[in-house]
Deep mutational scan, measured.
Amino acid sequence: MALNTPQITPTKKITVRAIGEELPRGDYQRCPQCDMLFSLPEINSHQSAYCPRCQAKIRDGRDWSLTRLAAMAFTMLLLMPFAWGEPLLHIWLLGIRIDANVMQGIWQMTKQGDAITGSMVFFCVIGAPLILVTSIAYLWFGNRLGMNLRPVLLMLERLKEWVMLDIYLVGIGVASIKVQDYAHIQAGVGLFSFVALVILTTVTLSHLNVEELWERFYPQRPATRRDEKLRVCLGCHFTGYPDQRGRCPRCHIPLRLRRRHSLQKCWAALLASIVLLLPANLLPISIIYLNGGRQEDTILSGIMSLASSNIAVAGIVFIASILVPFTKVIVMFTLLLSIHFKCQQGLRTRILLLRMVTWIGRWSMLDLFVISLTMSLINRDQILAFTMGPAAFYFGAAVILTILAVEWLDSRLLWDAHESGNARFDD
């Protein structure tokens, strides 16, 4: 018995066209964080690309023209004298008006014999932002004059995390709450300039795509075929072959399989920071003279006294001054041990922890910024005066060393310790 099946006739004509040209192939790229070699397709503007294995951002879609970056830099340069030299806060102490600005706080630190601690604050609040705007201006002028731009481009990517104007702005709020127990506070004209400078700096850093600047100024022929001998440069993120001198053909720094002496430098910085954190938390970090009496505060006791007036601000200072430094030390110690013992479990967790400490590390400088600003506000000789204690130097040095330890660690070593050939990683 035959089955009668109805015929289905399409209502619209289906047209099949042959592909007349070869589909576009992607360029081969190595991930600078996990060293995976993959094919990167062509990316349009405002599109980002991520590593298929570790999800690290390979290409950032946010990109401004150099002219727009230069305009932002010149605007920031105009704001800087007002943000640093004009009063941020006014207080009335014992019937006398006192003005506080950024430069005055750094000068008070240096004047009291601790120039190293003052230079830490100076670099993060004044030096690094000033280098940022002058570097962008150098790129703008240098591109037109045919100057060598490689050193500036190499420095810009590392400079971003040292620009800490946003953290200093939080420190202004913390210092205001600490001082309000002794005097009446009012915002100064410099505060508005400083807030504007923070906003412009944040926007500029978020749109400063150094890798795209490398592509514009020093374009290189990408690798179009897969080759395990391809290496990625950690300076400019170019994937290719080393030249005859073993250097990256684009930025001219040595092109090595792994960062040289990464573990040794990381261990040295980490152990030194552990040693410095002990006096930083045991010795007094601030000293207040009130009517001839002397009151010393460690980091913890200062947080407890701050909690009596504002528990939320005390929580912020606790996280930045105690929780973050010790968390960074514990995480980095764990990561280094996992590399030495070739741990194969929990790779995803370790990668996330490394990215976390990379982002939060700079916030530990908050305590030094609060001390710097408070020193310029309260300084009335023996009637009422505020000065920093010996722990300030140890704390600042420990924070900087932990930042350097994270920067010096080559994250690809975590993958080397893991089993080879993993296309995915999980716990």
Rank of each mutant, 00 (worst) to 15 (best):
H261E: 06
W107T: 14
S45R: 13
A423N: 13
K342R: 11
P81Y: 11
G361I: 03
M36P: 00
R216M: 04
I319T: 14
L169G: 03
D60H: 06
C31F: 00
I400C: 07
Q244D: 07
A268Y: 02
A70V: 14
V195N: 08
I167G: 05
W267G: 15
S273E: 03
W408S: 05
W64T: 15
I285Q: 01
P41R: 14
I96H: 02
F333C: 15
T327D: 02
K265Y: 01
M332L: 12
L93C: 02
H46A: 12
R245K: 08
L337H: 12
H184S: 11
I288D: 00
R144D: 03
P6E: 08
K178P: 01
L323P: 01
H184N: 08
R62M: 12
Q108H: 13
G292H: 04
A115L: 02
T110H: 03
N44G: 08
E161L: 14
L255S: 08
P249M: 04
F333L: 11
L347V: 14
R231F: 06
M388Y: 04
A2W: 11
A223K: 07
P390H: 08
V179C: 14
L257P: 12
V203M: 06
N209W: 13
R30L: 12
Q33K: 15
I116Q: 09
R62A: 09
C343P: 14
I400G: 06
L290R: 01
A391N: 03
L377E: 03
G361E: 05
A398Y: 07
I98S: 08
A196T: 15
R350D: 13
A398C: 13
G421E: 08
P87M: 06
D426T: 11
M155P: 02
S193T: 03
L353S: 14
K160Y: 08
K12R: 11
A385G: 06
N101S: 09
T224M: 10
V317T: 01
L149C: 15
W415Q: 08
T402I: 06
M147L: 06
E157R: 13
V174W: 01
E21C: 09
R226Y: 15
V399G: 07
T239M: 05
L377K: 00
V313D: 07
L234S: 07
R53C: 14
S176D: 04
D367Y: 00
R247H: 05
L353C: 13
M72S: 05
G235M: 01
K265G: 02
E212A: 15
E296C: 14
C34V: 00
G142D: 01
Q382M: 13
G293P: 06
S135A: 06
M72F: 02
A175W: 01
R150M: 05
I19P: 11
K342G: 10
G190A: 03
Q295N: 05
H237P: 02
S372V: 06
Q55W: 13
L337S: 15
M388F: 03
A423S: 15
G105E: 03
F192A: 13
M147S: 05
L89D: 07
H340A: 09
V179R: 01
G293M: 12
P10L: 10
T5E: 08
G188W: 06
V198I: 12
D297W: 03
H90Q: 07
V399P: 05
L213S: 12
I167H: 02
H90V: 09
H340W: 07
R350Q: 11
T349R: 14
S372R: 01
R348S: 11
V174C: 14
T204A: 07
S193D: 04
T67D: 14
S286V: 04
A223L: 12
M375W: 03
N310D: 11
S372K: 14
Q244A: 07
R355Q: 15
Q55M: 10
R256P: 11
I303P: 02
D427S: 13
E157K: 14
V232C: 15
Q47I: 15
I98K: 03
V370S: 01
K12M: 13
